[in-house]
Structure formats: C-alpha cells, structure tokens
Computed example of a mutant assay.
Amino acid sequence: MVRSGGNGRGGGQSVKAARRAEVVLPDLAVWEGGGLEPDGDYDGLEFADLDLAGQEGVGSRFMDCAVRRCGVDGVGLAKARVLDSVWEGVRGVGADLSGALLRDVEVLEARLGGVQLQGAVLERVVVRGGKIDYLNLRQARLRDVVFEGCVLVEPDFAGAVLERVEFRDCVLRGVDVTGARLTDVDLRGAAELEVARGVESLAGAVISPAQLFDLAPALAAQLGVRVVA
C-alpha cells in the first residue's frame, strides 16, 4: 500500500505505509510462576500487576502473551522472542532486550527509560502513547513499525536500518540517526522533531516543509554553509 503525497502531507512525494500490527489475543491464563527463567517458554499467558524487576529471562519466548502494568526495572530479556503479544502500561528503567525479536507486538502507554534494544529486530510493532527516555536501538532493524502519540527523548537509531517506519503525533527530542539507513520513513506526522546527530543520514525519510525549516540550521552546518544576515 502506498500513501500518496496528494493528501497534503508530502508535496508530491510518496512513501510506502507501514503494515500495522493487529494483535488479537486468545483467552489467556494467569501466569502464576515464581519468576522468569532463561530460555523460558511462555504461551497464552497474562502477566498482570507484577514486579519483574531484575528477573532473568534471557532467550525466552513469549507467544500470545499480555504483560500489563508490570515493573520491568533491569529485567533481562536479551535475545528473547516476543510474538503476537501486547505490553500495556509497563514501567521501569534499564530493561535489556538487546538482540531480541519483536514481531506483531503492541506496546501501549509504557513509561520506560534506558531500554536496551541494540541489535534487536522489530517487525510489525506499534508503540502507542506513553514516554520512553534514552531508547537504545543502535544497529537494530525496524520494519513496519509505527510510533504513535508517544514521547521519545534522545532515542538512538545510530547504525540502525529502518524500513516503512512511521512517526504519528510523536514528540522526538534529541534523535541520533548517525549512520542509519532509512527507507520509506515517514516523519511528517511528528508533532516535534529534533535531530541532535546524524542529520546527514535522513536520506530515505519524508518530512514536511515546516520540518525542513526547523532542520535547516543543522543541514547548513552539515554542508559547511554559513548563514549570515
């Protein structure tokens, strides 16, 4: 599906739209385990109102699961696989999902800081609402990902590959896209866009005329152009 610039948001440009995750969960069983385990296999479970801080679930698989209103400070989920799942109202600092796979996942109203997703793969993921500070997506691969109505403070996309990624009604502050590769990345719907580093790597993104005006000083500096009144 192609979204045309004829809708007034692209000035004649076109950008392929992200294929949105639409997660439909089955009837879930309440998880009653004592704690996450490395290489655990969690299928059709609901984790609700739990403190998962510091627990280690490295290499685990979550399939058709809901994680609701849980504390995830320092939880270890490196190389985990999160499939067809919903994470809603999670909160915490320093969750480690480095090298993880998230496919067909909705993250709703999260309040997170310092989430480690470097080297992760995100496919058909929706992040809606909430606030995430210092999101680390270095060297990650994002395809068909939508950020909607959320606040991202100093997200790090350095060296990442983004394809069909949309930012809708988002606030993006202090973004680092150094060395990133972008294809059909739609930034026009961002309510606020501040690129701190890597403005030269925005090739492959689509922005609005107003955003171009805001980015002009950084673009001029990158080109070595002095603007003198």
Rank of each mutant, 00 (worst) to 15 (best):
V2F: 00
R3F: 06
N7H: 05
G8K: 10
G12T: 06
Q13N: 06
S14L: 04
A21L: 05
V24W: 01
L28S: 02
V30M: 08
W31G: 11
W31N: 10
G44V: 10
F47M: 11
L52Y: 05
V58S: 05
D64S: 11
A66G: 05
R68V: 15
R69D: 11
V72I: 10
D73C: 05
K79A: 12
A80H: 03
L83G: 02
D84H: 14
V86R: 13
V90F: 05
V93Y: 00
A95W: 10
D96A: 10
G99V: 07
L101N: 03
L102D: 03
L108C: 01
L108E: 11
V115K: 03
V115R: 04
Q116F: 04
Q118C: 12
Q118G: 14
L122F: 12
V127F: 11
R128E: 13
G130H: 09
L135N: 01
N136T: 02
L137A: 11
D144S: 07
E148A: 13
L152R: 10
V153N: 12
V153S: 10
V153Q: 10
E154S: 15
E154L: 10
D156H: 11
V161R: 15
E166Y: 02
F167A: 06
D169A: 15
C170E: 09
C170G: 11
R173E: 14
R173F: 14
V175W: 00
V177I: 15
R188W: 15
G189Q: 08
A190Q: 13
A196R: 15
R197E: 14
V199H: 09
E200N: 13
A203F: 08
P209L: 08
A210V: 12
F213Q: 15
L215A: 12
P217F: 07
P217L: 02
L219G: 11
